[in-house]
Design a protein around this nucleic acid. Structure first.
Lengths: 200, 200
DNA sequence: GATTTGACAAACCGACCGGTCGGTATGGCG
DNA sequence: CGCCATACCGACCGGTCGGTTTGTCAAATC
């Protein structure tokens, strides 16, 4: 026994991730997931008690993976903008559908009961906003950022980054550096025209 | 004949809006919509050919309403920040579920076929981002904003505004003015600490 | 080598839901 | 009044989908 248990489970999780990114929760059937993973529905239900449990397992696995990735990206000691730049670059290096997984949380958050929902939000926040929040908190502490609510600012930062990753934005940037610079500049200095700013 | 045709249709549309805000497209049944509107499913299907058509009709009606509202809000001649402030205030004055309707577009956009999807996106963009875009374009033209892609900037602005409308943000602001000022300040001047800025 | 156990397959079930359809009520119009 | 169009009702159907049940086979256990 055991044997390729792990490969089967991970194959199911990967198939589920791909399908849930491509289609709505309700429009993805467990049969499709099973087929896509090369197993039968019976096998799938042998490893997961329900469609919901499978979805949640997939999301938590993905989010934990991202959390580790992003945490490492901002780990080096550097200035606040540099570290947020590292974060953005780590995000950009992900293949498109890996990035899209982050979007699922917001899309599907209201289809689960309160308990599962809260767990998902916690996992999502740990994966991305809280990583940014810690960097921003350091930035506030070091005087690189104006005093303010670090959590709110981190969400704002993530929101700006997401827009800069949209399909429309794809056509506006020629490379990743440009995109990163744009987001950082907007977040730190805003969109107003510079009228000869004096930096101390 | 005719008579309360209009009231029946609008009651169905309103019931649909409320339900689709509260639950996923797939989790809202047409029977629920009919019940909530005080009619039978037969009556509903007398006025709408399908669930999808009903949803789309509801969304287009809502978005057109918002488009008018927002367009009026930014109409007065004023500075770019002032006009964007008007836009934010118009948004804030809406009851919560009216605001949430705007979120539906992003949530449900990928459950329809290409044609309906494109229509929805156009209606959404006309309702909010393009209103902001025109203001931002004027701002760039008048030198209030740094030169840049007005469309991309408008999306960034909307993204910032949405975060500032989140439930968490609710707890960080005591009144609407504070919220508006926060978003405007962040959008125009960024989050960096001010080191004695000289404005011409 | 008999038995247990876990991984998987395949057929199946029950509930639900979008959509249909035959029919009724109402009210304008000639 | 007779005729027709439109608003609306409510029972019903076909299909789908999450989940279950039963069976099989191979590896582990004794």
């Amino acid at each position: 026994m055991v044997m390729n248990l792990e490969t089967t489970v991970t194959r199911i999780l990967q198939a589920a991730a791909a399908l849930f990114v491509a289609k709505n929760y309700a429009d993805v059937t467990v049969s499709q997931i099973a087929d896509s993973a090369g197993v039968t529905k019976g096998a799938l239900y042998h490893h997961f008690r329900s469609k919901e449990e499978l979805y949640l397992a997939m999301m938590h696995a993905e989010l934990e993976e991202k959390r580790l990735l992003f945490s490492e990206a901002v780990a080096p000691k550097a200035s606040c903008p540099e570290r947020l730049g590292h974060l953005l670059r780590a995000f950009l290096k992900l293949p498109r559908d890996q990035r899209e997984v982050m979007r699922l949380v917001r899309r599907d958050i209201n289809i689960f009961r309160a308990h599962a929902r809260a767990d998902l939000i916690v996992a999502y926040q740990a994966a991305l906003p809280m990583v940014a929040e810690r960097v921003i908190q350091d930035g506030i502490h070091d005087g690189e950022l104006a005093a303010g609510d670090a959590r709110l600012l981190s969400w704002q930062f993530v929101a700006l980054a997401e827009v800069a990753l949209s399909r429309y934005a794809d056509s506006r940037f020629t490379n990743a550096d440009q995109r990163v610079a744009f987001v950082l500049d907007l977040f730190f200095h805003g969109a107003a025209a510079q009228h000869g700013v004096a930096i101390s």
